[in-house]
Design a protein around this nucleic acid. Sequence first.
DNA 1: GATTCTATTGAAATATTATTCCTTTAATTG
DNA 2: CAATTAAAGGAATAATATTTCAATAGAATC
Lengths: 156, 156
Amino acid sequence: MDLDEIDLQILALLQCDASISTELVSQHVGVSKTPCWRRMQRLEKLGYVKKKVALLDADKLDLGVSVFVQIKTNRHDASWAEELTDVINDFPEVVEFYRMAGEYDYLLRVLVKDISAYDEFYKKLIRSTSLTDVTSNFAMEQIKYTTEVPLAAPKI
Amino acid sequence: MDLDEIDLQILALLQCDASISTELVSQHVGVSKTPCWRRMQRLEKLGYVKKKVALLDADKLDLGVSVFVQIKTNRHDASWAEELTDVINDFPEVVEFYRMAGEYDYLLRVLVKDISAYDEFYKKLIRSTSLTDVTSNFAMEQIKYTTEVPLAAPKI
DNA sequence: GATTCTATTGAAATATTATTCCTTTAATTG
DNA sequence: CAATTAAAGGAATAATATTTCAATAGAATC
């Protein structure tokens, strides 16, 4: 990891607010504009910053329901896994997708308007591929959601 | 929802790439710079755009392991819920936190370096508050992760 | 149906911020 | 200690965001 303390500080600032100006970043981290800007460029180039995005208010856009879907399968070959990945990537409702250790094989987070929209999704999903066991868990409330990764922050 | 088609297009662009210039956005959606800029301002002001952030590469930063933690409790009063929220909000490792319907009461996604880092977190957590039942599910691989909400996209 | 009023648009002007260029400083090695 | 290299900072330039204002379109009233 070829990052020094200043780089980490820059990353911490940017993952909190990507619209901050180079000048302000430079003041926070204690180097002048040009070297600060070069560091920011480098962090993007090396892929530490993957992208800059706007986070939308899902509730306001009537997408208030997260459903966690646990999936079991009896197909454990690579080609099936690839097929499933392709299927899932075609669903914009699926915002997270993990291969799990333990009890079940995959976990999805599906973001929908309401229960009936989830049912629509569910029917599309089981039509798209063959799954052994699908369990749906509904979230009533999103209490915390952050895209900030926990950088080893020496909070004094 | 006081948004027209153009607003939705703007939101779709920004949640994909927040560093796009106003000029490019205006060309995509077919209005000129100034009204496009005013729409963007309005979307922030009304809270449709909550914030703009940089998404970091968690793997490169050695934070490759997501753990989903299911929590059950026998305390179902409001004050305990509030206490739990406060406790959780103090853990930067917890990147998502939901109150669930059904089997278990809460679900966390915890982002850590490795299993031993998770164990550290786990010990801190159970020391911080009293929980009836805690089940940890490890993700082996993050196959999909997006912050983009599924805007009713008529993908033709 | 003409006319006024209002709200929205877009082109141009201005201000801010990003980016480049070049000199200076600091650090490292022979 | 001089020579070389790498990184830093200041000043100039380019790009972009923001404001201003004149022009247009739409709605409402007479």
